[in-house]
Design a binder for these strands. Structure first.
Ligand SMILES: NC(=O)c1ccc[n+]([C@@H]2O[C@H](COP(=O)([O-])OP(=O)(O)OC[C@H]3O[C@@H](n4cnc5c(N)ncnc54)[C@H](O)[C@@H]3O)[C@@H](O)[C@H]2O)c1
Ligand SMILES: NC(=O)c1ccc[n+]([C@@H]2O[C@H](COP(=O)([O-])OP(=O)(O)OC[C@H]3O[C@@H](n4cnc5c(N)ncnc54)[C@H](O)[C@@H]3O)[C@@H](O)[C@H]2O)c1
Lengths: 256, 256
DNA sequence: CGCGATTTGTGCACGTCTTCACAAGCGCCT
DNA sequence: AGGCGCTTGTGAAGACGTGCACAAATCGCG
């Protein structure tokens, strides 16, 4: 019964965990499901239906079921999904069973905020190093970590096994930093600098650009403003649910 | 021929220039083109080919041309696009001809970084207010702006015309803040708190979740690692695709 | 004035993602 | 045991996004 052998969780595995080749869109949503599941677990839910979880994660329930079926997951018809098991499954697929080491390069305005952020630790990551080019910042201690000079990157990479590099330097320096990260073997980069990075094949880059998000919102504002002649749909009022559970799935959140 | 009236550039506008109904994917890329165009303009380029701009923005040139054609934009065959004109066009479509006012709620760790960020001002936005619930933070001056209590939101909204609300509070408070923003008429929200927001129809929400980005990267690390263990498959593998496309989801190798 | 070089704009085919709708499976109750 | 209500997993259809390949348009030059 509880002996559902899940595809490759640490305990047992046929041979190769055989990571299914998940669609990118699914991969991007798994972390959201995971967050929702942790919230549910905290409130004591042992199982959850696709409808319930979809609501908590802000997606369509059919999409959620398809996503979960993709990773060979196990729900029970008529009952739903086992929350704990599903957490374990998703964490395994996302590679969160090992706590990955993150190197943060650029400890300025934004870097400070990131360094002090506890969301890293609580979601499967560990800041292994803070690096900056400014010698006057080197030595500063943030959250128990000392800022080291970026030239020490090779040494740091040798000491710790850096899985992910985070770039929070000005755009002008970002490409150089990316090159350095790649040189020391980093194959995943999260870039906060507003610029395009060029990296060799096999290296993944994701970017976060605040201004782009705002500009997308601006576009929709503009569009909405130009439609003011249209009748408003019956305002249903806001649903204020206790933080954590959002039941209505009617939201305009724009994906990707 | 020049009869092409471009939608409504500053010069004058008939009335409402009927914003074309752009695909979301296109909207999401326009800001990237805009950034690249500004860079090009700074270096003195007066025109740019789709190939050139696509390179600078990190996308496929056919996609770029299709995007630009969507917004009825004008290139000149055999020449390319006029950089200044294109900037004007895109800024118009994105609604950046008016500098939009942003209210930032939650001036903590992250909020401080955002408040001190000059990327707002330089990309078409103006921080109109800093708000926090913690009375001990009220009165603090950041970057020339004073932190006000969140209860003053209605007054602030009346004074300034807030177009966009940015939420940088803990997740537990985010829904309540969103409700407050909606109440005072804000219809676009950028949410940094790791939670799903429930908002009435007509309100747009975009979210930025650092942990999700990291977890997506983690998945690809995991997948890459599980492939390294395997023998080279057939050997077709990675034979230096010249500038070809190896892009999986975000971006990978980009030639210039 | 016409020609060739260049580059845009787009028709088309293909792949990915979303959503609906429903059969199959499960547990509970009688 | 059997039936009933609930929920999953998935086939199929359609919407959406992508990239190729090429005709149409424009410029510069002889
Ligand atoms: N502050 C924000 O809220 C915010 C928001 C979105 C994006 N960003 C982007 O994030 C980046 C950082 O922003 P910021 O406000 O923290 O800037 P900042 O100037 O405060 O900090 C940049 C830091 O990077 C360091 N640095 C510069 N070159 C370096 C190099 N080659 N190697 C290592 N470190 C180097 C600097 O010494 C400095 O400490 C910028 O690209 C900015 O556009 C910032
Ligand atoms: N720090 C980061 O780098 C980072 C990165 C990604 C996401 N986040 C998220 O951003 C949010 C803020 O993070 P932080 O590190 O700045 O936290 P923080 O605790 O430092 O700051 C939160 C601020 O919000 C204020 N606040 C609380 N309730 C409020 C309310 N109802 N109305 C107005 N203000 C209120 C608090 O007084 C505090 O000043 C969190 O949800 C966090 O998960 C932070």
């Amino acid at each position: 019964m509880s002996q559902h052998r899940h595809p490759g969780a640490p305990g047992r595995a046929g041979a190769v965990p055989a990571l299914p080749d998940l669609p990118e869109a699914t991969v991007a949503r798994l972390p959201e499901y995971l967050r929702a599941l942790h919230n549910l677990a905290e409130v004591g839910h042992e199982t959850v239906s696709s409808e319930g979880l979809a609501g908590a994660a802000g997606v369509n329930s059919a999409k959620l079921r398809k996503d979960l079926s993709q990773l060979g997951s196990y729900g029970t018809r008529g009952v739903g999904y086992d929350v704990a098991l599903l957490i374990e499954q998703i964490e395994y697929v996302l590679g969160l069973t090992q706590r990955r080491a993150v190197a943060l390069v650029g400890v300025g305005n934004l870097g400070h905020a990131l360094a002090g952020y506890d969301g890293f630790a609580s979601r499967g990551f560990r800041i292994a190093a803070l690096l900056d080019a400014d010698r006057s910042r080197v030595g500063e201690v943030i959250n128990g970590l000392v800022v080291r000079h970026v030239d020490e990157l090779p040494r740091v990479a040798a000491e710790e096994s850096i899985a992910i590099g985070v770039i929070a330097t000005p755009a002008a320096a970002a490409q150089a930093v990316a090159d350095q990260l790649v040189t020391v073997g980093v194959t995943s980069i999260l870039n906060f600098a507003p610029c395009v990075l060029s990296v060799p094949e096999g290296v993944d880059v994701r970017k976060v650009d605040l201004a782009i998000e705002l500009q997308i919102l601006s576009f929709h504002e503009h569009r909405k403003a130009s439609l003011t002649a249209l009748p408003a749909t019956g305002g249903s009022g806001l649903t204020a649910l206790p933080g954590g559970l959002a039941a209505t799935d009617t939201q305009e959140a724009i994906g990707t």
